[in-house]
Amino acid sequence: MTAKTVGAGELLSPQQLAVVRERSDLRGTWLVVHAWGVIFLSMAMFAWFPNPLTFIAAVVLIGGRQLGLAILMHDGAHGILTKNQKLNMFLSQWFCAYPMLAETGAYRRYHLKHHANTQQQEDPDLILSAPFPITKKSFRRKVVRDLTGQTGYQQRKAQFLNAIGPSDWPLSQRLANFNKKLGKSALTNAALFAILWAAGHPWYFVTLWVLPLLTWHQFITRVRNIAEHAMVDDDDPFRYARTTRAGLFMRAVLAPYWVNYHVEHHLMMWVPCYNLPRAQAYLFANGFGERMEIKDSYFDVIRMATSRPDSDDRPGELKHNARRRRVEGSMGEGFEPSQDAA
């Protein structure tokens, strides 16, 4: 069953629609530059003031911008990052998707199924939200696995094994398969490594790129997944998704580039991320605010998501991970989007 929808004309006036539909080559390009600027400045901060606190800060800031790159790739997949579609795909692919071991076209095919079937049985993202609420013990286990790199390692391992193909394939076939699925990602990551090598910090590729990707980025991706669709209504388009209010600090470390405006995105998926706050203001002005699923903070969402009594905790009861299922094309061929629910 497909998800219910609300027509754009029922939500906003023609004048309001014209404003929120507007796409900007300058703004889209600036957001990509901003993401990479934060990443390199975070590395520079640690290089200038090397100590445990600046290292942790760099990992958190870089992991947040890695999520930011995924968000900008998401807008690219919708064709709304910039007005010029060639620029949209160029930025989305080479500066957002490939560095994150993803691919915009494959993600688009997967993601549009999510929009067409939001919170229905055919929704490929339902696996991310269905297990909630869970116990606090279960959530703590997930956080530990995320922040120690275990979840990220298992997902990337599955992705690489899929890319190199079965061991009984001839070497030429395995190389061709790898090149098809991860060749451009390998190229962009090699370019990043070369830049860091030239800057005199080659080890930053491991400590301040791979490590944030496998730890903090993994954790905040989980929190984002919970906030967006866990414990929402499956029969009301104003409550299929959740918007979560976020201040400056949370936007810096957990919710970059307006990703927290998720109800607005599902109501009008053709609105660029940089226009979502304006879209929300129009929806509120038009009297839809009370109908929308909105939480005041990510802490409120986590409290609700961990409301199941610890007495019901059953480690290993639910396992929605790469051992159960590989979703082709969620972030790129062979990437597993789901996170274990045990």
Results as ranks from 00 to 15, higher is better:
P212F: 08
P170W: 12
L87F: 08
R108Y: 15
Q159S: 11
E290T: 04
A230S: 15
R108C: 12
D168V: 08
R222C: 00
L26S: 04
R141S: 05
A158W: 11
E328K: 07
R239T: 10
D296Y: 05
A279T: 15
P212S: 14
W270Y: 14
G329R: 03
G105H: 04
I127L: 14
R174T: 05
R21F: 12
R323Y: 14
L196D: 04
I302G: 03
V263E: 10
L26F: 13
N225I: 04
A305Y: 00
Q154C: 07
S307G: 15
W209Q: 03
R245A: 10
A190L: 14
W197H: 08
H115T: 13
L192A: 06
A285L: 05
R278I: 09
G287K: 05
G149D: 03
S172C: 04
V253T: 08
A8M: 02
A130M: 13
K137S: 12
Q339K: 02
S129V: 12
L17C: 11
A35Y: 00
L128H: 10
D296P: 01
G76I: 06
T244R: 02
T243Y: 06
R140S: 10
P131M: 09
F95S: 02
M269Y: 06
V253F: 08
L61P: 04
M45T: 11
P237G: 01
S307T: 05
R251S: 03
L192Y: 05
P99V: 12
K181M: 13
V210H: 04
D300Q: 08
W209Y: 15
A305I: 06
M231H: 07
Y240F: 12
N117S: 04
V59I: 15
Q85G: 06
T54Q: 03
H229Q: 14
D313A: 10
L91H: 05
Q154S: 01
E290K: 15
K184L: 07
F288S: 03
P166A: 12
W36G: 06
W48E: 09
Q119L: 07
N51E: 10
G28Q: 06
H262Q: 13
I71H: 01
V59T: 15
R308W: 04
H74S: 11
K136L: 06
H34S: 06
F95D: 02
L211G: 13
D313K: 14
K86H: 14
L248I: 13
A70S: 13
L175T: 02
I134V: 13
A322G: 12
G332S: 07
I302Y: 02
W36S: 03
G183Y: 00
T54N: 03
I39P: 00
E333F: 12
R108D: 05
E122P: 00
T244F: 09
P212E: 15
S92P: 02
N51L: 03
P50N: 02
E333L: 14
Y298E: 01
L128E: 13
W203R: 10
A285H: 00
A18R: 13
I71Y: 01
R224C: 03
L12H: 01
V210P: 00
D25T: 04
S330E: 13
N117P: 01
W94D: 09
A186R: 01
A130E: 14
L61S: 13
W48L: 15
N275F: 08
A44Q: 10
A252C: 01
N275Q: 15
A176Q: 13
R303N: 03
C96F: 04
A252F: 04
L67V: 14
Q93M: 02
T118L: 08
K184N: 04
T244Y: 05
